[in-house]
Nucleic acid binder design. Sequence first.
RNA 1: GGGCGCGUAGCUCAAUGGUAGAGCAGUGGCCUUUUAAGCCAUUGGUUAAGGGUUCGAGCCCCUUCGCGCUCACCA
Length: 515
Amino acid sequence: MEFSDLEKLRYNKILSMRENGIEPYPTRSEVTMTIAEAVSAFEEAEKAGTTEPISASLAGRLRAIRLMGKLAFAHVEDGTGRIQFFLRVNELGEAEMTRFKEDFDLGDYIQGSGTLTRTRTGEISLILNEFRMLAKAISPLPAAKDEVVDGQVVRHSVLADPETRYRQRYADLAVNSDVRKIFRTRAGVVKAAREFLDGHDFLEVETPILQPIYGGAAAKPFITHHNQLKQDLYLRISFELYLKRLLVGGFDRVYEIGRDFRNEGVSYKHNPEFTQLEFYWAYADYLKVMELTEQMIAYVCDRVLGTRKVMYNGNEVDFTPPWRRVELRQALIDATGIDIHQYPDSESLEKVMLEKGMKFKPGQARGKLIDHLLSEYLEPIFIQPTFMYDYPRDISPLAKMKPGEPGMVERFEGFVGGMELCNAFTELNDPLDQEARFLEMGREYEAEDEERQPMDEDYLRAMSYGMPPCGGFGIGIDRLVMLLTDRHTIREVILFPHLREQERESKAENREPEK
RNA sequence: GGGCGCGUAGCUCAAUGGUAGAGCAGUGGCCUUUUAAGCCAUUGGUUAAGGGUUCGAGCCCCUUCGCGCUCACCA
């Protein structure tokens, strides 16, 4: 390791501590309770009027040190909270006071034992009888100080540079408690969704991430290789085709929460890997799925936030069911004046779009044009939770026909905060229709279009054994967490978002020659 | 991939083309109830990297790297 000047000073303390017989990285600690437990134990004793002093051994990271000559105050933080350590020469003696001043720096892990009290200014504190180094920090944490103004924590000199925050997320988390809160919320969201689905008799399953044939969405895959099998494999872009095979196998209600990988551009709502929740529900259809979706999100809000109303990007978003429902065709008429039913092929649709002065890439399939209209003119305007339903069949190759409307399928997408949040349909279970759709997709997309859905023969075989009628659903967990934490970029809700690799000299030497 | 912007001390930020600075952190002092503790003193820079213009470049030009915004892409 190479040390900066600041780090060398701390490293030298490690050496001198060891010379004095003190291990700066002891193997064990003797903590009797968490900081939060200590604080509430003291408050309860106070309320009960107990006079017996409470002893405790607490540990955490040193976040502030205030030396006052013969006494010292320190703020110590563990995963549950923060407390003040009160060090005084009366209890510790001159030698120990000197040891504290010489050995300890901000960021070190300290264990302190003593009794709980309130200081003159009323702060709950641990008066130390003894203390010990638990782990020496060599690198100084980014300087950050908290000030409490009217009960609100005001932060000073926080680590703010996004690049450093994402590349060194550990430092970001260590000094920015609001960032830790995002990921507690995130864990709560996943847990609550799981509770909800378990409570509705869904079975959680795990399906392959490495897939010989990718499918279930229109996206470019990552390709990897199995050496021994001499076989290329794809990282999954969705769980859909495997989960529906399980319905064929007799599991009527299944769900999976996991990672999808899409080899596409990054943006404020796209990360190359993202967390998806999909469920499939036998004997249900997209209308039932719509209702379950509202209930699930409301349940998650209740459990995680205790409210169904959240502020997102300056707007109050209300997740209380029922969500607004709008038909895609009508929504497009309202927003653009174009009735897609009157333009049954890409040529006529392109023509009217040109007449309206819309910008788009010419020569696309009709489905892609409609999708363009949708994401350009509809997605951004749906701030309140909205289900848009009944999609053209040519952009929904896995969804079932809407009875009596041959060009349409039973599909809906949920939009919130101007983002697509979830996608669901009544699943296509007719193997012959499914085969025809795969073939159609193959024709309509350019041969070199990597989003083209490859024909999945085994999936068709599964369908041919018979799959019960069912509704299927997928939701982007990252985006849901964005909405519930009022974060406006997906990187804020992913612990280690993908960043470009930094150029390194050693790396440059090892790099394979350019082709 | 295109366009625009940014990169200065460990952190947050200053600096008309003319001696690179402040606060916090650090270091040395003083201080027995502080809490962004305070007071005195003080260290710290290849201004992302490389090249160019200029008497002189953090600032102007070029290249590269990284980040951000945006467009494209993204059922």
